[in-house]
Design a binder for these strands. Structure first.
Lengths: 98, 98
DNA sequence: AGGCTATGTAAGCAACTTCTTACACTCTAG
DNA sequence: CTAGAGTGTAAGAAGTTGCTTACATAGCCT
């Protein structure tokens, strides 16, 4: 979970995830979407995402295709849900006490 | 969202959130739970959490009481859900195509 | 083979994080 | 009022992150 949450904490990486969310994208296609930063920078972000299990990589000849891997967020989602549920529980208690 | 996700990316801060999840805790009570690190370190983590809107602070005489503020995770939860839903959508499509 | 395309890796630097110790502040209690 | 408890803030060290440029690797095409 730690790795996934640290990966997701970066806005560029979240943007990449939004992009690959709709289907596979090559490293180059992704890099093109970030004209303000160098291609290697994007490549490094992709590595972080892959290491965190947030994207899948597939070789396609010359290119590398990246796709979202939502399971990688399972534990993070669990944590957030656990925090979130507190609100619901509290709300319920508040309602019951009035 | 950025601030919340960066705050949550740290394991100590997540642990703090788990602790205040069940109700208010004073700074000192929280610091006691992290014997391996200094009290000021915990205090600094609490500040990060408060700045990110993930905890509420209340002064109680000499002490400061911290409580979880789950709304602070709303945007983060939204992001994760948006990624997550992809899986469901894909699954649905896969089922429909077979 | 040789050159071009697509991509990753290495090295290094600047900025940021997360600690620590030392200090300041603010209530409460006697 | 003074002492001590509870807590935040300041300054600085050490480690980590996120970039850049330069280089390496691997597949494709003529």
């Amino acid at each position: 979970m730690d790795e996934a949450l640290r990966a997701v904490a970066d806005p560029t990486r979240r943007a990449i995830m939004e992009l690959v969310r709709d289907g596979e994208r090559s490293a180059g296609q992704l890099a093109d979407r970030f004209p303000q930063m160098s291609r290697p920078a994007v490549s490094q972000h992709l590595r972080v995402l892959a290491d965190a299990g947030l994207v899948d990589v597939r070789r396609d000849g010359n290119r590398r295709m990246y796709a979202l891997r939502p399971q990688g967020l399972a534990d993070a989602a669990g944590f957030i849900e656990r925090m979130w549920s507190t609100q619901l529980r509290r709300l319920k208690e508040a309602v019951e006490n009035e």
